[in-house]
Design a protein around this nucleic acid. Structure first.
Length: 762
RNA sequence: GGCUGGUUAGCUCAGUUGGUAGAGCACCGCAUUCACAUUGCGGUUGUCACAGGUUCGAGCCCUGUACCAGCCACCA
């Protein structure tokens, strides 16, 4: 059958992937010997569709996988998706909002179920896209981060860490977003530069009628919560004030001036007001000096009873009110209107973060981070490009304890239980129960109304079952008696409503995809070979996988980390919906073909830097795919015209011209260079090397000379050899067009290109 | 404030043991259907940011400067 004049990527892509699946080509070859080559796919978020970065990721990983498969290594690539806790819940809540609803209209279980259904749709789309991109992943081992075995592993780790004292519950200053209703890790906070106002407020010295000190603050709404004022004891001008008492201008409360070296004498006025419950620095100072923690801002972002007459107001209206009052009193000395400050906002919604003291579950990282750091500095884990290593090592050195509780429903629920009601005929008196009565509960009663209060009070009006079934959230004070258990330990227990930080579970990814601890896969494929991902999640993800891997198995979970750059928009800026510069991969796959898109992206990311979407290259590689197709077509037309039986090329065969030998050499050089470059993760150069060999050499020179050559028979042997070997070299980069071309050689001895042997130098 | 990367053709970017500057796109001329117009042939374009240094020789190594981008920390 004659080949079409042009390569039609659409018809090929749909059929070739099905063919690969039918051949079972994605499963690791059981007969293959040698060191296994394994990659676990960084699971795309089930919150939505895939983006250009995912295409790049798949292109690079598929390239490595296909290369090793052809090399004859036992090769495994495991796909999956991430439930992406907070991320997905936010997306879902946006959908709810369109329907005029919110998460508070549902009890915990119903909300979870709804998001579950929402996610199924996304997961299906993502799976479809992974296939569309030609990823040779083993679908039999597909993993979702909420699969039962994943949850089981995460629970086991938590219990192990708990028993070893590596997780603890504590009141701690956390980043709380009142709008999102959850806490964030420091890593998830963005510092935004904003122009704000710095207020200079006068505090009268006790017992004096006209002497005062001035305090500079950006947060006047917390003045009523001040407990002390601080100066630097080394500050010669102000050290003498230590011990002096001043009057809070809003409450009239008497406050003492204390000394602490955290105060920068050169900044502001040298006097700092302290609100230990609502500021990170003040919190540290407060702990050091044993100051009271007055919680004046609640989790709803409104002032609490402790804020006196401002109670119930939002932080923002309280600020305006306080400023008005202070002005009236004439205690505002001046206002710096153009003060450049950095405001902490949550990474998703950009809402202002309220530092709050809340009970939280923490992972003690000290003993985990040391071996994880050593794994990289010793070279057990090698990072490419090398200069990214410093991002990792610095983070590992600085890492603080990791808050792992998230106040969202969508995630793996922390396996901790609190007894809130003593079973009636229980003999032993549970000491925890009395403290546990203080647990704050929010639940949906039978009339679907939100009720909140301490469990002790609520149990007077509602049954335990009502509370349990309608439960929305529970906040247990740090001192509560807690039982770690996957299942309910018995009657009268309520489970923690917080879920794990999504990175806690995805930190187990190489383990859970291989069914740690007792599977054949784990025994054979752990540690994996390469972890390929974007540099922006080194801290979030790569570090946690290394920590958990070493903690649980004693070995880091992978040998190499390859970090690709971010695909930016055509204007060089980060793609974002708000800028409207997002490039949809579907359009390009549709118009130019998957091979062209993959190849274009690969040659764009030469050194792991971010790069603008290389539109021109996509077009040129589309042309290249067509070129390859027509080179093959030319071969067949020549064979037909000459009516010869073409023999397989063999070194030393008769009638080889000097040019023939020269091209065999060029092929050998290309093979050698490709191997070397791939070993060094230099994918772009490898891609371009083969491209130039095939187009500028084989097509432009070798094929042209055949047209004028007398003895075409030998030359056609050489051409077929060059074509078939070249197509092999290209297969990892452009799998569809090469597999299609391969099938145009009915005389081939290897049926499937995907499983064919990698070219050797002859 | 600390750190990282960048500054090379009109544009986007390669350039890893230091040895006469590269690709894709764009542009100009020619070819016109003989595998491919998703084509072929030919051509134009560079004080490789700046200033010093090392070297027989530097886009590449060293020092400094400027500008751009990003990350982290602090900011009363």
């Amino acid at each position: 059958m004659a080949m079409a004049k042009n390569f039609d990527h659409k018809s090929v892509e749909s059929s070739v992937y099905a063919q690969w699946e039918k051949w079972g080509a994605f499963e690791p070859n059981k007969e293959a010997k040698g060191k296994p080559f394994t990659i676990v796919l960084p699971p795309p978020n089930a919150s939505g569709k895939m983006h250009m970065g995912n295409v790049l990721m798949i292109a690079i990983e598929d390239l490595m996988i296909r290369y090793h498969r052809m090399k004859g290594d036992p090769t495994l690539w495991i796909p999956g998706t991430d439930h992406a806790g907070f991320e997905t819940q936010i997306t879902y809540e946006r959908e709810l909002k369109k329907q005029g609803k919110s998460r508070f209209d549902f009890d915990r279980q119903t909300l979870y179920q709804n998001i579950w259904e929402f996610v199924q749709n996304n997961k299906n789309q993502i799976e479809g896209q992974i296939k569309q991109m030609g990823a040779s992943v083993d679908w039999n081992r597909y993993t979702f981060t909420l699969d039962p075995h994943v949850i089981e592993t995460v629970y086991t780790t938590f219990a192990k860490m708990h028993s070893e004292g590596l997780v603890y519950r504590d009141n701690y200053m956390v980043n709380y977003c009142p709008k999102c209703g959850t806490t964030f890790a420091d890593l998830e906070i963005i510092h935004e530069e904003r122009v704000g106002k710095l207020y200079y407020v006068k505090y009268l010295i006790q017992g004096e009628s006209d002497k005062y000190i001035t305090v500079a603050t950006t947060r006047p709404e917390t003045i009523m919560l001040d407990t002390h004022i601080a100066v630097n004891p080394k500050d010669k001008k102000r050290a003498s004030y230590i011990g002096t008492k001043v009057i809070n201008p809003l409450t009239g409360k008497v406050m003492e001036i204390i000394g602490d070296e955290f105060v920068d004498p050169k900044f502001g006025t040298g006097f700092v007001k302290l609100t230990p419950a609502h500021d990170k620095n003040d919190y540290e100072v407060g702990k050091k000096h044993g100051l009271p923690f007055i919680v004046g801002i609640g989790m709803d972002g409104r002032m609490t009873q402790a804020a006196g007459r401002w109670a119930g107001k939002t932080v923002f209206t309280a600020r305006d009110d306080v400023i008005g009052e202070l002005k009236e009193m004439g205690v505002i000395e001046k206002v710096d209107e153009k003060y450049n400050q950095s405001v902490s906002v949550c990474y998703k919604g950009g809402h202002e973060i309220e530092p709050m003291v809340l009970p939280n579950w923490f992972v003690k990282v000290e003993s985990l981070k040391k071996p994880a750091l050593a794994a990289v500095t010793s070279g057990a884990v090698k990072i490419y490009p090398k200069w990214r290593e410093i991002t990792y090592t610095k983070w590992m050195e600085e890492m603080h304890d990791w808050p792992i509780s998230r106040q969202v429903v969508w995630g793996i629920r922390i396996p901790v239980w609190y007894m809130v009601r003593q079973p009636e005929n229980s003999e032993s008196q549970n000491v925890g129960v009395s403290e546990n009565q203080k647990i704050q509960i929010t639940f949906l009663n039978k009339e679907k109304k939100v009720v909140s209060g301490t469990v002790g009070e609520l149990l007077k009006s509602y049954t335990f079952e009502d509370i349990r079934d309608g439960l929305q959230t529970l906040i247990a004070p740090a001192g509560c008696e807690a039982v770690v258990s996957a299942e309910s330990p018995g009657e009268g227990y309520l489970q923690e409503t917080d879920t794990f930080d999504t990175w806690f579970s995805s930190g187990h990814w190489p383990l859970v995809t291989l069914k740690y601890p007792d599977s054949d896969d784990f025994a054979k494929f752990y540690p994996t070979s390469v972890l390929e991902t974007g540099w922006e999640i080194i801290r979030f993800w790569v570090s946690r996988m290394i920590m958990f891997g070493i903690y649980l198995t004693g070995k880091p979970p992978f040998e190499y980390v390859y970090l690709h750059g971010l695909v930016r928009a055509l204007d060089g800026r980060k793609m974002s919906k708000s800028l409207g510069n997002v490039i949809n991969p579907d359009e390009y796959m549709d118009q130019y073909g998957v091979d062209a898109l993959r190849m274009g992206l690969i040659s764009g990311t030469a050194n792991g830097k971010d790069f603008a979407f290389p539109k021109d290259k996509i077009v040129s590689y589309r042309n290249f795919a067509n070129k390859l197709w027509n080179m093959t077509r030319f071969y067949h037309m020549m064979v037909e015209k000459e009516e010869v039986k073409v023999e397989w090329y063999k070194p030393g065969m008769d009638d080889l011209s000097e040019l023939d030998l020269d091209f065999i050499n060029k092929l050998n050089t290309t093979i050698k260079k490709t191997d070397e470059l791939l070993a060094k993760f230099r994918f772009a150069e490898a891609a371009e090397t083969i491209y130039h060999f095939m187009w500028d050499e084989v097509a432009a020179v070798y094929i042209e000379q055949i047209k004028d050559r007398d003895n075409k028979k030998t030359s056609l042997s050489v051409l077929r050899h060059l074509l078939m070997q070249g197509v092999k070299l290209l297969h990892p980069f452009m799998p569809f067009v090469t597999e299609a071309i391969w099938s145009e050689f009915p005389e081939r001895t290897e049926e499937q290109l995907i499983n064919a042997s990698w070219p050797e130098i002859k």
